[in-house]
Amino acid sequence: MSFEFTFDGHVVSAEPGQSIAAALIAHGRRTWRRTRTGAPRGVFCGIGVCFDCLVTVNGRPNRRACLIEVTEGDRVETQDGAGRADLAC
């Protein structure tokens, strides 16, 4: 049974058990982070090793999109850089 979450305000559908990254890729989205130098990043390792796919989930930054199973109503946002002070929890 598919359900919906939001990604930077846009409504995206997902299947149960899908990671945030998988749901975004299924919708044709490959890029969602910029590094400190502005380089685009998306998923690389897909298994929680590389930290390239970081997103902010329900206000919490630095979450690995490839590991977190998306749930209905989640608010997912892109983040620039990694571990910036203004993003720290």
């Binding site: 299947e15 058990g17 899908q18 990671s19 990254a21 998988a22 749901a23 890729i25 299924a26 490959r30 890029t31 685009p40 990043r41 998306g42 998923v43 690389f44 390792c45 897909g46 298994i47 590389c50 490839c66």
Partner: peptide, 18 residues
């Protein structure tokens, strides 16, 4: 983006059907 590890591509497919 679009360059994945081989295991990552496998994980997307087996773990998420994508």
């Amino acid at each position: 983006p679009g360059v994945f590890t081989a295991g990552g591509v496998q994980a997307l497919l087996k773990g998420h059907g994508v």
